[in-house]
């Protein structure tokens, strides 16, 4: 770390000038942090998409013993901050339930579960937008419940919620820095660490912001592309 400290910093007075050499030097560490952020987000996305769909379907169950606890869980998660949930997973789970996971796993899990409760609401809206007649037609040709979900309802429900899902995924990426509070050295955590050892916040945090932009802008474009790709006219 010491080699990162600019030799001039002790003599510095007034606002530090932007130092391109220093920025270049810290870039690899920041990229490493970005890689952690991306990994956590990807794991979180997969979890949020899959678990969210499961929660949405379970919430529609006619069996109250399933739908009621699922609704309660979704409301609980949506009504409490992600930060509190991360602390709960990271500190309370090992302490009270003996469940110890790595900081990264805990963080990705926390992101995924938190956003699953939001995506489940989007899925629910999409599922409810499918006409009742579609379910009835599926029943009239004797499709099983599983086939009706897989072949009739979800292919119509999911395209309508892609924009909403996409927005949550970009939001999740931007929430990933909260993982730094449970010791995960993702992008912002890495910038903070650099700032702490070098006393130069400008390059580290500016670059972190630029790197976030470099990922979220193309991601948003990708979401818009998918949205167009899956659009179709309703009959």
């Amino acid at each position: 770390m010491n080699e990162l400290v600019p030799t001039t910093f002790l003599a510095q007075e007034g606002p530090a000038k932007w130092d391109w050499d220093f920025a270049w030097e810290i870039l690899p560490d920041l990229l490493e942090g970005l890689w952690v952020t991306v990994q956590a987000t990807v794991v979180g996305i997969v979890l949020a998409l899959v678990l969210g769909l499961g929660l949405a379907i379970a919430r529609r169950s006619t069996i109250k013993l399933i739908s009621w606890p699922v609704s309660a869980f979704i409301e609980l998660v949506r009504s409490t901050p992600l930060l509190a949930q991360l602390f709960f997973l990271f500190y309370v789970m090992p302490d009270q339930f003996g469940v110890t996971l790595s900081a990264f796993t805990t963080g990705a899990l926390g992101l995924g579960i938190h956003y699953a409760c939001y995506t489940s609401e989007s899925y629910r809206a999409g599922i409810e937008s499918v006409d009742r007649g579609q379910w009835e037609a599926a029943q009239a040709i004797n499709l099983t419940a599983t086939t009706t979900w897989r072949s009739v309802v979800l292919p119509q429900a999911i395209p309508t919620v892609i924009p909403a899902l996409g927005n949550y995924l970009v939001a999740m990426f931007k929430d990933a820095p909260l993982l730094s509070t449970i010791t995960v050295l993702e992008l912002v955590g890495e910038a903070k660490r650099i700032q702490a050892v070098t006393f130069r916040p400008t390059e580290a945090f500016t670059l972190a912001g630029v790197l976030f932009l470099a990922v979220s802008i193309p991601s948003a474009a990708l979401v818009r592309y998918l949205e167009r790709r899956f659009r179709y006219e309703r009959a």
Binding site: A140, L143, T144, T147
Partner: peptide
């Protein structure tokens, strides 16, 4: 089997698939 007032065809399937999905799946 039933034919509905509002058709209730599956909009994401071709005419052929609308007809053949029942025999295939059920």
């Amino acid at each position: 089997s039933m034919v509905f007032q509002h058709f209730n065809l599956f909009p994401h399937m071709t005419a052929l698939r609308n007809v053949s999905i029942g025999p295939m799946k059920a």
